[in-house]
Amino acid sequence: MFSDLTPLKELETGRRRAERLAYFEMLASGIAHEIKNPLVAIKTFAHLLPRRHSDERFIEDFGRIATREIQRMERLLERLHTLSRPSDRLRQPLDLRVPVTEAVETMRAAFEEKNLVVTVVTPPTPCMIRGAHAELGQLFLNLLMNAHEATPPRGMLRVELAVTETHAIATVLDTGPGVPAELLDRVFEPFFTTRQRGSGLGLAICAAIAQTHDAKLKVANQPAGGALFTAEFPLAVAAPAPVSA
Rank of each mutant, 00 (worst) to 15 (best):
F188M: 08
E102G: 06
F233R: 00
P234H: 00
R195S: 14
R130D: 03
T13D: 11
E10W: 05
A110Y: 01
L94W: 05
E165T: 14
T44S: 15
R64C: 08
D4S: 11
R108N: 13
A224H: 02
G225P: 08
R16M: 13
T106G: 08
L83E: 08
E232I: 15
L96S: 06
P124N: 07
A181G: 09
M1G: 15
K43N: 15
R51D: 12
T125P: 01
I35E: 10
L39K: 08
G30P: 00
H167N: 13
T193K: 02
P86V: 11
G30V: 01
R197N: 13
P126M: 05
A132L: 04
H133W: 05
H133T: 01
P152T: 10
E182F: 02
V104C: 12
E113M: 15
L83D: 04
E56C: 06
L96C: 02
L144K: 00
L183V: 09
I59T: 05
N37I: 14
N146V: 05
I169D: 07
T13M: 06
A162V: 12
T230W: 05
L184P: 06
G225S: 13
F58V: 11
Q196D: 10
A236M: 03
D55E: 05
E182G: 09
L203D: 09
L173F: 09
T101M: 12
L235S: 03
V187H: 11
A32V: 09
R91Y: 00
P38G: 04
A231K: 03
P234E: 01
P123I: 07
L76K: 07
T101Q: 08
F24C: 02
L27I: 11
R79W: 10
E232K: 15
T164D: 06
E102L: 13
D4K: 07
D55K: 03
A204V: 08
E10D: 06
